[in-house]
């Protein structure tokens, strides 16, 4: 009686262990020794035999799945992002500017007094310094970098790219009326694009001596970033600046609006007339 129970327990333990090898058996990935153990178990276990057949059928079915092509807009987006990453000049220029700024600061502050201070004073002061910095970062959201928000990066990249060449041919499917107008503005061209992975309508608009781009983008893309949400909730709009290029972001009805252009050419939010439908 005891022997029967022991044999049953051993079978049960082997049965459980073998279940983890059944994919390997179906895919012919077992060693000769493992294969023999599994096969001798399968001879007496219908449940595992059925499982092997399921595993094989499932493997074949999944292997037949069709592949979809990557959208052309994503190819372009990746090409632009890679080209930006691969162009050392941009990074060098930023580094150069940063160094210049650092030199200016070091000239403003003569650091000799710092070297004359005692170690304890320095530690106390540096502790307070870190605390103040953290406090500033926490309470002043505008101090955090806003330029790494993907939608902002994308419109800036497209602006820089298209600004050096002829504007795209207007898309007749989109009415030639931009979402935002302001005194002296008029639409030059419009086209379809993708921002944040969602379709977007783009408009090139003359503003005085400059051309700015407007993007009507998907609402979920617009509100994806917490800094944008917070700024829009607080002041009704969100602003970002990188070098001389600025982006003004405003919510529309069931969409978002990004206006990108030379910082000085961007209209003030209060002079805008928005088409919300």
């Amino acid at each position: 009686m005891n022997n029967d129970k022991k044999t049953l327990d051993q079978f049960e333990a082997l049965h459980l262990q073998i279940q983890d090898l059944l994919a390997g058996y179906s895919d012919n990935m077992l060693s000769e020794q493992e294969r023999m153990i599994v096969e001798s178990h399968l001879a007496g276990c219908e449940a595992c035999r059925i499982d092997v057949e399921h595993q094989q059928l499932l493997g074949h079915r999944l292997n037949e799945m069709l592949q979809v092509r990557m959208p052309e807009t994503l190819h372009q987006r990746i090409d632009q992002a890679l080209s930006k990453e691969q162009t050392p000049e941009i990074g060098d220029e930023i580094a150069k500017k940063t160094n210049q700024k650092a030199n200016e600061w070091s000239q403003i502050f003569n650091l000799d007094w710092f070297l004359g201070m005692g170690r304890a004073s320095i530690m106390t002061l540096s502790g307070w310094g870190v605390a103040m910095l953290l406090l500033l970062i926490l309470i002043v959201p505008s101090l955090r970098s806003n330029n790494n928000i993907p939608m902002i990066q994308e419109v800036m990249t497209e602006y820089r790219y298209l600004n050096t060449m002829a504007l795209p041919v207007s898309n007749r499917a989109i009415p030639l009326v931009a979402p935002a107008t302001w005194p002296g503005s008029y639409v030059l061209a419009n086209w379809k694009t993708t921002i944040g992975g969602a379709p977007a309508d783009a408009f090139a608009v003359r503003s005085g001596d400059h051309v700015v781009f407007q993007y009507r983008i998907d609402e979920t893309v617009f509100f994806r970033n917490p800094n944008v949400r917070k700024a829009v909730a607080g002041s009704g709009n969100f602003k970002s600046k990188n070098k001389n290029l600025g982006v003004l972001a405003l919510p529309l009805k069931r969409a978002g609006l990004l206006i990108v252009g030379a910082d000085k050419s961007l209209p003030a939010p209060e002079e805008l007339t928005l088409r919300t439908i």
Binding site: L22, C45, E46, A47, I50, D51, E53, H54, L57
Partner: peptide, 20 residues
Amino acid sequence: VSTDDVLLLEQRSVAPGPFE
């Protein structure tokens, strides 16, 4: 899920069987 699951045993797949 164990191979002893009742659901799995229901669909015995003798090709072309129910699971296929």
